[in-house]
Protein backbone atom coordinates (compact mmCIF):
# COMPACT_ATOMS: atom_id res chain seq x y z
CA UNK A 1 0.00 0.00 0.00
CA UNK A 2 2.52 2.60 -1.02
CA UNK A 3 -0.05 5.30 -1.63
CA UNK A 4 -3.22 6.15 0.16
CA UNK A 5 -5.67 8.90 -0.61
CA UNK A 6 -5.79 11.08 2.46
CA UNK A 7 -9.40 12.01 1.82
CA UNK A 8 -11.20 8.69 1.28
CA UNK A 9 -8.49 6.26 2.28
CA UNK A 10 -8.36 4.40 -1.02
CA UNK A 11 -5.02 2.78 -1.58
CA UNK A 12 -2.96 2.50 -4.70
CA UNK A 13 -0.21 0.17 -5.65
CA UNK A 14 3.25 1.46 -6.26
CA UNK A 15 3.57 2.58 -9.82
CA UNK A 16 -0.13 3.20 -10.22
CA UNK A 17 -1.07 5.82 -12.73
CA UNK A 18 -4.61 6.08 -11.52
CA UNK A 19 -3.83 8.72 -9.01
CA UNK A 20 -2.08 10.99 -11.45
CA UNK A 21 -5.22 12.93 -12.11
CA UNK A 22 -6.53 12.67 -8.59
CA UNK A 23 -8.25 9.92 -6.67
CA UNK A 24 -10.81 8.29 -8.96
CA UNK A 25 -13.20 7.82 -6.05
CA UNK A 26 -13.24 11.15 -4.34
CA UNK A 27 -11.16 13.40 -6.54
CA UNK A 28 -8.70 14.08 -3.75
CA UNK A 29 -5.23 15.06 -4.77
CA UNK A 30 -3.32 14.39 -1.59
CA UNK A 31 -1.79 10.99 -1.12
CA UNK A 32 0.17 9.51 1.69
CA UNK A 33 3.13 7.38 0.81
CA UNK A 34 3.54 4.24 2.87
CA UNK A 35 6.50 2.14 1.96
CA UNK A 36 6.54 -1.48 2.84
CA UNK A 37 6.88 -2.46 6.44
CA UNK A 38 5.49 0.72 7.84
CA UNK A 39 2.03 0.98 9.08
CA UNK A 40 2.17 2.97 12.24
CA UNK A 41 1.12 6.54 11.87
CA UNK A 42 3.48 8.35 14.04
CA UNK A 43 3.01 12.02 14.43
CA UNK A 44 6.31 13.77 14.37
CA UNK A 45 5.94 17.48 14.10
CA UNK A 46 4.35 17.91 10.74
CA UNK A 47 6.18 20.22 8.44
CA UNK A 48 4.17 23.35 8.42
CA UNK A 49 3.58 25.89 5.75
CA UNK A 50 4.83 23.81 2.89
CA UNK A 51 1.71 23.25 0.91
CA UNK A 52 1.43 23.32 -2.82
CA UNK A 53 1.96 19.72 -3.65
CA UNK A 54 1.84 20.21 -7.40
CA UNK A 55 4.90 22.38 -7.24
CA UNK A 56 6.93 19.38 -6.27
CA UNK A 57 6.25 17.49 -9.40
CA UNK A 58 8.52 19.33 -11.83
CA UNK A 59 11.45 19.18 -9.53
CA UNK A 60 11.02 15.50 -9.02
CA UNK A 61 11.07 14.86 -12.67
CA UNK A 62 14.82 14.41 -12.99
CA UNK A 63 14.90 11.44 -10.68
CA UNK A 64 11.63 9.90 -11.62
CA UNK A 65 12.14 10.22 -15.30
CA UNK A 66 15.36 8.32 -15.45
CA UNK A 67 14.54 5.82 -18.16
CA UNK A 68 16.76 3.13 -16.76
CA UNK A 69 14.76 3.08 -13.58
CA UNK A 70 11.34 2.66 -15.03
CA UNK A 71 11.42 -0.98 -16.00
CA UNK A 72 11.88 -1.90 -12.38
CA UNK A 73 8.83 0.04 -11.40
CA UNK A 74 6.58 -2.86 -10.52
CA UNK A 75 8.95 -3.96 -7.79
CA UNK A 76 6.80 -6.63 -6.15
CA UNK A 77 8.21 -6.30 -2.65
CA UNK A 78 7.01 -2.76 -2.58
CA UNK A 79 3.43 -3.61 -3.22
CA UNK A 80 2.50 -6.57 -1.14
CA UNK A 81 -0.45 -5.38 0.77
CA UNK A 82 -4.04 -4.75 0.01
CA UNK A 83 -4.12 -2.21 -2.64
CA UNK A 84 -7.16 -1.70 -4.72
CA UNK A 85 -5.65 -3.77 -7.44
CA UNK A 86 -6.14 -1.11 -9.99
CA UNK A 87 -2.52 -0.45 -10.56
CA UNK A 88 -0.84 -1.60 -13.70
CA UNK A 89 2.39 -3.06 -12.48
CA UNK A 90 3.93 -3.36 -15.86
CA UNK A 91 3.39 0.17 -16.86
CA UNK A 92 6.34 2.47 -16.82
CA UNK A 93 6.34 5.11 -14.21
CA UNK A 94 5.03 8.35 -15.51
CA UNK A 95 7.61 10.99 -14.75
CA UNK A 96 5.01 13.65 -14.37
CA UNK A 97 3.26 11.86 -11.57
CA UNK A 98 3.82 13.88 -8.45
CA UNK A 99 3.50 11.01 -6.06
CA UNK A 100 4.34 8.19 -8.34
CA UNK A 101 7.44 6.56 -7.03
CA UNK A 102 9.93 4.61 -8.99
CA UNK A 103 10.46 1.51 -6.99
CA UNK A 104 14.18 1.14 -6.94
CA UNK A 105 15.77 1.95 -3.67
CA UNK A 106 17.72 5.13 -4.37
CA UNK A 107 15.12 7.22 -6.09
CA UNK A 108 12.53 6.21 -3.57
CA UNK A 109 14.06 8.53 -1.06
CA UNK A 110 13.42 11.53 -3.16
CA UNK A 111 9.94 10.36 -3.87
CA UNK A 112 9.29 9.96 -0.22
CA UNK A 113 10.35 13.49 0.30
CA UNK A 114 7.96 14.55 -2.38
CA UNK A 115 5.16 12.55 -0.88
CA UNK A 116 5.86 14.07 2.45
CA UNK A 117 5.22 17.40 0.91
CA UNK A 118 1.94 16.22 -0.42
CA UNK A 119 0.57 15.11 2.87
CA UNK A 120 2.13 17.78 4.94
CA UNK A 121 -1.01 19.68 5.58
CA UNK A 122 -3.29 16.96 6.68
CA UNK A 123 -1.32 14.05 8.00
CA UNK A 124 1.79 13.54 10.01
CA UNK A 125 4.83 11.73 8.71
CA UNK A 126 5.18 8.07 9.32
CA UNK A 127 8.50 6.73 10.48
CA UNK A 128 9.78 5.98 7.03
CA UNK A 129 9.04 9.45 5.85
CA UNK A 130 10.61 10.94 8.89
CA UNK A 131 13.75 8.94 8.41
CA UNK A 132 13.87 9.76 4.75
CA UNK A 133 13.75 13.38 5.62
CA UNK A 134 16.37 13.15 8.27
CA UNK A 135 18.63 11.17 6.02
CA UNK A 136 18.72 13.56 3.17
CA UNK A 137 17.77 16.95 4.46
CA UNK A 138 20.15 18.89 6.59
CA UNK A 139 18.93 20.53 9.77
CA UNK A 140 19.65 23.87 8.19
CA UNK A 141 17.27 23.15 5.43
CA UNK A 142 14.60 21.94 7.77
CA UNK A 143 14.98 25.15 9.65
CA UNK A 144 14.57 27.05 6.50
CA UNK A 145 11.61 25.00 5.41
CA UNK A 146 9.81 25.57 8.64
CA UNK A 147 9.92 29.28 8.18
CA UNK A 148 9.45 29.21 4.48
CA UNK A 149 6.23 30.88 3.50
CA UNK A 150 6.72 30.64 -0.20
CA UNK A 151 4.56 27.74 -1.30
CA UNK A 152 6.58 27.18 -4.43
CA UNK A 153 10.02 27.25 -2.97
CA UNK A 154 9.89 24.62 -0.26
CA UNK A 155 8.84 21.40 -1.94
CA UNK A 156 10.99 21.87 -4.97
CA UNK A 157 14.12 22.48 -3.02
CA UNK A 158 13.48 19.60 -0.66
CA UNK A 159 13.07 17.03 -3.34
CA UNK A 160 15.98 18.27 -5.34
CA UNK A 161 18.29 18.20 -2.40
CA UNK A 162 17.40 14.58 -1.83
CA UNK A 163 19.19 13.67 -5.01
CA UNK A 164 22.43 15.39 -4.26
CA UNK A 165 25.54 14.73 -2.25
CA UNK A 166 26.34 15.11 1.41
CA UNK A 167 26.01 18.91 1.39
CA UNK A 168 23.35 19.33 -1.20
CA UNK A 169 21.72 22.40 0.12
CA UNK A 170 24.32 25.10 -0.38
CA UNK A 171 23.29 25.98 -3.89
CA UNK A 172 19.65 25.91 -3.01
CA UNK A 173 20.12 27.99 0.07
CA UNK A 174 21.96 30.45 -2.06
CA UNK A 175 19.15 30.50 -4.59
CA UNK A 176 16.60 30.85 -1.90
CA UNK A 177 18.51 33.65 -0.27
CA UNK A 178 18.64 35.35 -3.60
CA UNK A 179 14.92 34.97 -3.99
CA UNK A 180 14.10 36.25 -0.56
CA UNK A 181 16.79 38.87 -0.42
CA UNK A 182 17.15 40.16 -3.89
CA UNK A 183 18.95 43.05 -2.28
CA UNK A 184 22.01 40.79 -2.02
CA UNK A 185 22.67 38.23 -4.69
CA UNK A 186 25.27 35.60 -3.93
CA UNK A 187 26.79 34.86 -7.29
CA UNK A 188 29.27 32.39 -5.84
CA UNK A 189 31.17 32.16 -2.57
CA UNK A 190 32.91 35.48 -2.09
CA UNK A 191 31.14 37.11 -4.99
CA UNK A 192 28.12 39.29 -4.39
CA UNK A 193 25.89 41.63 -6.26
CA UNK A 194 23.98 44.23 -4.35
CA UNK A 195 20.79 46.06 -5.15
CA UNK A 196 21.30 49.30 -3.31
CA UNK A 197 17.75 50.51 -3.63
CA UNK A 198 16.44 47.27 -2.16
CA UNK A 199 18.93 47.47 0.67
CA UNK A 200 17.90 51.01 1.31
CA UNK A 201 14.20 50.26 1.15
CA UNK A 202 14.27 47.28 3.48
CA UNK A 203 13.17 47.78 7.02
CA UNK A 204 15.16 44.78 8.15
CA UNK A 205 18.84 45.20 8.49
CA UNK A 206 21.00 42.33 7.27
CA UNK A 207 23.54 41.99 10.02
CA UNK A 208 25.56 39.11 8.72
CA UNK A 209 25.80 36.68 5.87
CA UNK A 210 27.19 33.22 6.41
CA UNK A 211 29.14 30.89 4.20
CA UNK A 212 26.28 28.47 3.76
CA UNK A 213 23.97 31.15 2.49
CA UNK A 214 22.22 31.76 5.79
CA UNK A 215 21.90 35.23 7.13
CA UNK A 216 21.04 37.12 10.26
CA UNK A 217 18.74 40.07 10.13
CA UNK A 218 17.66 42.54 12.70
CA UNK A 219 13.94 43.01 12.57
CA UNK A 220 12.44 46.38 13.17
CA UNK A 221 10.95 46.73 16.62
CA UNK A 222 7.44 45.45 16.90
CA UNK A 223 6.20 48.63 18.42
CA UNK A 224 7.81 50.54 15.63
CA UNK A 225 5.77 48.70 13.05
CA UNK A 226 2.50 49.12 14.85
CA UNK A 227 3.16 52.79 15.42
CA UNK A 228 3.79 53.51 11.81
Amino acid sequence: MPHQCTTCGRTFRDGSKEMLSGCPDCGGNKFQFKPKGTSADEEPSPPDATPSAPASSPSETPSASSPSETPSAPSPPETPSASSGTAAPGEPTDPTGPADPPASAEPRESTQAGSTERVSERTGEDTAQASARSDVVSPDELDRASRDVDPDAGPGSDSTSAEEGPRPDIGELRDELNEQFESIRIVSPGKYELNLMELYDRQEYIISLQEDGRYVIEMPDAWGISDE
Binding site: G190, Y192, L194, Y200, Y205, I206, E211
Partner: peptide
Protein backbone atom coordinates in the same frame (compact mmCIF):
# COMPACT_ATOMS: atom_id res chain seq x y z
CA UNK B 1 39.63 37.32 0.54
CA UNK B 2 36.31 35.49 0.61
CA UNK B 3 35.77 36.50 4.22
CA UNK B 4 36.64 40.10 3.47
CA UNK B 5 34.26 40.02 0.56
CA UNK B 6 31.42 38.79 2.73
CA UNK B 7 32.14 41.36 5.40
CA UNK B 8 32.33 44.08 2.79
CA UNK B 9 28.90 43.06 1.56
CA UNK B 10 27.56 43.21 5.07
CA UNK B 11 29.19 46.60 5.34
CA UNK B 12 27.33 47.92 2.33
CA UNK B 13 24.08 46.68 3.85
CA UNK B 14 24.95 48.47 7.06
CA UNK B 15 25.85 51.67 5.24
CA UNK B 16 22.53 51.66 3.42
CA UNK B 17 20.72 50.96 6.65
CA UNK B 18 22.39 53.91 8.32
CA UNK B 19 21.45 56.10 5.39
CA UNK B 20 17.84 55.12 5.77
Amino acid sequence: AVRRSREATEGVAEAMHWLR
